[in-house]
Design a protein around this nucleic acid. Structure first.
Length: 803
RNA sequence: GCGAAAGUGGCGGAAUGGCAGACGCGCAGGAUUCAGGAUCCUGUGGGGUAACACCUGUGGGGGUUCAAGUCCCCCCUUUCGCACCA
């Protein structure tokens, strides 16, 4: 072998050999111990990989390689999430077409990814923009449609009057259009396709209790689903027949309702508005409707107007005014609330602003029924000013008042969710066409499955324009189609579907990419799914992961698959930032890994990225310590080169090796890559200190290094005389008896301060340890002639003496 | 505002309630070398000492404990996510 380690030669050689030998491609049908490890597939941006990718992907790869060394048949696929607005905007910017552009950016990504030395099975790559893939995306849409999980309904969208087009929330900046900074974005209502994810709200919530996911991710999902337990209450409208239904989580505060508020869009506003208030109410509604969604939700000061009508509180017949205000949202609950300013911060603000009465109905300890309120009190307490419920605690009164209302048929318990149905329509070009057809005679007709895919037609006219409808609505040859039912001239849906739909099922496709007749091969799917380990960024903690769970549940109910949670285990890797800020093109702080791969090689770079900090935390990118890893691998190289096969290993070094095997194995299981690498460095230091190493010690070290630095590990493994891949070898089992030393050093504390150190046999009894500790001169000097109040011996740790 | 996480040397970071700062970078001194690089050895939180001893130290303030970076209470700061969800 060469005298010096040259990463370029070694890495090229092994990338070639892996490819030629199919090292990274398990036999999916015959695998005995399948293990599916999944990394979130990238969006192939034109800029290529950044160091965040070079942190995330190797982290998954290390896990996969470790599992493989443990004897699993590991399937580690990758693909490209290449549809979507980013690609489309980029294409617009450079004056090209995504159909030509995307294959180039994917090629570049593929090149960079393979340079990282991932154990990826490239034979199962997916590209969401290829018709072979999105054919099945459309198929899934149709399955959901057939099973009643798809509805068409009106929904508000952001509308830019200057662009004359729909904007995504990301394109609205402080209420103004991204491209027209002085044009206010408006709200418009359009017919769109929705997936009924809300039907699954409770199941999505409940399963969070048992799936093995990071707590922070589960918390984010719970938050997003936002289950609220409360009650719906019907108020009659004074002197009229209408009823006003509200949702509240605080039925216990019903006696404190001093006014009602409807969302400006509420259906009853028109009829409830009295003649004298009409002009004012209409002006107000007009103003609110022009406001875009983002701005409206971020207003500091609440606004509102009185309708002129009054409602009657069912519990005490109090007449209270009905207002409309922007702080009540039409899409949540019933779009109407009872306002209890004494015990709700928002209602309190509003009541102060408009001088509405505030009645305390909950008293905290020490408060009386009339103790004035400086702010809304939302804590626990006892009911006051609440008639026959006075004195009850909040927890008791909630069901109590709800039951009272139910008996009188003017209320009942109710659960609300924050989660909305998933709008999947996009009035854009770069996505899979939604496979629906509108026929004047037959109505809405799904495209027959045999006609899939509905291919996205090539066109250079894909820029959103003044028509306000999707670009495909300008491609006549696309939208003109005979009705599949009656054959008459009909019209295709011209919206495309949300990119999140592409990524909500890609992991189901990977094993089945060889099948062009079904989306999901049942046998392979049974063998490989659900995914054993999924690792990705926490920025997808909510949407992507929620949608994936939903699609999986829906497909289970439809009978396509037989499990309902797609990812047995999910871990979020940390975020790599640069100079304290997120990397982004606009900040100009994106670090490209190519220069490092060039200079140091993939092994050094991978290992360095992992050494930077805890994998699940991420950190600030800096290259200052990279030479440390380089020195480590060079020293490892020298050790293998200098191996003396006749050498006899010392007891100390043998124990150090077993200790390291245990430590590194545990750290790998817990994704604590940084501390595992530290342990590997320590072992190499021990070899140099207590050497020489024998074959077992050195091979163990190589096997432990292999997940991090696979190329050099293969090279050195071969140098030791092996003819098969190191990844076909087995992770050595450590001997528990050898993971402890024969002697151990203990600190001796006197009154909490370390005063001496003693070396004792690891197996020494407490009495022996104590005697040794007390015999220390430094300890003697302190305790001589005094009485010990307490003696604590923690074997393996320390001795603590208290005077 | 709500939710999640985090504050430890010059830097990245280690520490099942048990000797704080593992491992690495950097820095200083030395060896080797014509020189540079590479390599090897030693040292490296702060104060203090000739050297020890000793004192002090994990954002701030209290507390529990023989023992607290770690547990409890209050406060400050930072990052991330969601933001009028009744």
């Amino acid at each position: 072998m060469e005298e010096r380690y040259d990463s370029t030669t070694v890495e090229q050689k092994w990338r070639r050999l892996w490819h030629e030998r199919g090292t990274n491609s398990p036999n999916l049908r015959d695998a005995k111990r399948p293990y599916y490890t999944l990394m979130m597939f990238p969006y192939p941006s034109a800029e290529g990989l950044h160091v965040g990718h070079a942190f995330a992907f190797p982290g998954v790869d290390i896990h996969g390689r470790f599992k493989r060394l443990q004897g699993y048949d590991v399937f580690e696929p990758i693909g490209f999430d290449a549809f979507g607005i980013h690609s489309e905007n980029y294409a617009l910017k450079v004056g090209s077409n995504p159909i030509q552009l995307i294959p180039k950016t994917i090629d570049n990504f593929r090149r960079q990814l393979s340079r990282l030395g991932l154990m990826v099975d490239w034979r199962h790559e997916v590209d969401t923009t290829s018709p072979e893939y999105y054919r099945w995306t459309q198929w899934i849409f149709l399955q959901l449609y057939k099973h009643g999980l798809v509805v068409r309904k009106k929904a508000p969208v952001n509308w830019c009057p200057a662009c004359q087009t729909v904007l995504s929330n990301e394109q609205v900046i402080d209420g103004f259009c991204e491209r027209h900074p002085d044009v206010q974005v408006e709200q418009r209502s359009m017919e769109q396709w929705f997936f009924k994810i809300t039907q699954y709200a409770d199941r999505l919530l409940k399963n969070l209790d048992w799936i093995d996911w990071s707590e922070s991710t589960r918390a984010a999902q719970r938050n997003w689903i936002g289950r609220s337990d409360g009650a719906q209450i019907d108020f009659t409208v004074a002197d009229r027949s209408e009823k006003l239904r509200v949702f509240t989580t605080r039925p216990d505060t019903l006696f404190g309702a001093t006014y009602m508020v409807l969302a400006p869009e509420h259906a009853l506003v028109e009829s409830l508005t009295t003649a004298s208030q009409r002009a004012e109410v209409e002006a107000y509604r007009e103003r609110v409707s022009k406001m875009d969604l983002v701005t409206r939700k971020s207003l500091k000061e609440k606004t509102g107007v009185f309708t002129g009508s009054y409602a009657v509180n069912p519990v005490n017949d109090a007449r209270i005014p009905i207002w409309i205000a922007d702080y009540v949202l039409a899409e949540y609950g019933t779009g109407a609330i009872m306002a209890v300013p004494a015990h709700d911060e928002r209602d309190f603000d509003f009541a102060q602003l408009f001088k509405l009465p505030i009645i305390r109905v909950i008293a905290a300890d020490g408060d009386g029924a009339d103790t004035p309120l400086e702010a809304a009190y939302v804590g626990p307490g006892r009911l006051v000013n609440s008639g026959r419920f006075d004195g009850q605690g909040v927890a008791e009164a909630k069901p109590g008042i709800t039951a009272w209302l139910a008996e009188r048929a003017c209320g009942q318990a109710r659960v609300e969710f924050r989660l909305h149905d998933w709008c999947i329509s996009r009035q854009r070009y770069w996505g899979p066409p939604i496979p629906m057809i509108y026929c004047d005679a037959c109505g809405i007709v799904p495209v027959p499955e045999k006609d899939l895919p509905v291919v996205l037609p090539p066109t250079d006219d894909f820029r959103p324009d003044a028509s306000g409808i999707a670009p495909l609505a300008r491609v006549q040859s696309f939208y003109e189609v005979p009705c599949p039912q009656c054959g008459a001239q009909a019209r295709r849906e011209t919206d495309v579907s949300d990119t999140f739909l592409d990524s909500a099922w890609y992991f189901l496709r990977y094993p089945s990419t060889d099948r062009d007749d079904v989306a999901i091969d049942p046998e392979l799917t049974k063998k490989w799914l659900p995914v054993d380990m999924y690792i990705g960024g926490n920025e997808h903690a909510v949407l992507h992961l929620m949608y994936s769970r939903f699609i999986t549940m829906a497909l289970k109910d439809i009978g396509v698959i037989d499990f309902e949670e797609p990812f047995k285990k999910f871990r979020a890797h940390g975020l790599i930032i640069k100079d304290g800020a997120k990397m982004s093109k606009s900040r100009g702080n994106v670090v490209n890994p190519d220069q490092y791969l060039e200079k140091f090689g993939a092994d050094v770079f991978r290992m360095y990225m992992m050494f930077l900090g805890p994998y699940e935390e991420g950190g600030d990118f800096r290259d200052e310590g990279i030479t440390g890893i380089q020195r480590f691998l060079e020293a490892l190289w020298r050790q293998v080169r200098e191996l003396d096969v006749t050498a006899k290993v010392s007891d100390g070094l043998l124990r150090a090796t077993h200790k390291t095997l245990k430590k590194v194995q545990e750290d790998l299981e817990g994704l604590r890559y940084n501390t595992a690498i530290a342990a590997l460095m320590s072992l190499l230091n021990e070899i140099r200190r207590q050497g020489p190493a024998d074959r077992f010690v050195l091979e163990s070290l190589l096997l432990m290094v292999a997940p991090y630095a696979p190329h050099i590990a293969e090279e050195l493994w071969e140098a030791l005389g092996h003819t098969t891949s190191i990844f076909d070898a087995r992770w050595p089992a450590f001997d528990p008896a050898l993971t402890v030393d024969e002697t151990v050093e203990l600190g001796v504390q006197v009154n909490g301060k370390i005063r001496a150190r003693i070396v004792v046999a690891t197996s020494a009894s407490e009495d022996t340890i104590l005697a040794a500790a007390m015999a220390e001169p430094a300890v003697q000097a302190l305790i001589a002639g005094k009485e010990l109040k307490k003696k604590v011996v923690v074997p393996g740790r320390l001795v603590s003496l208290v005077l």
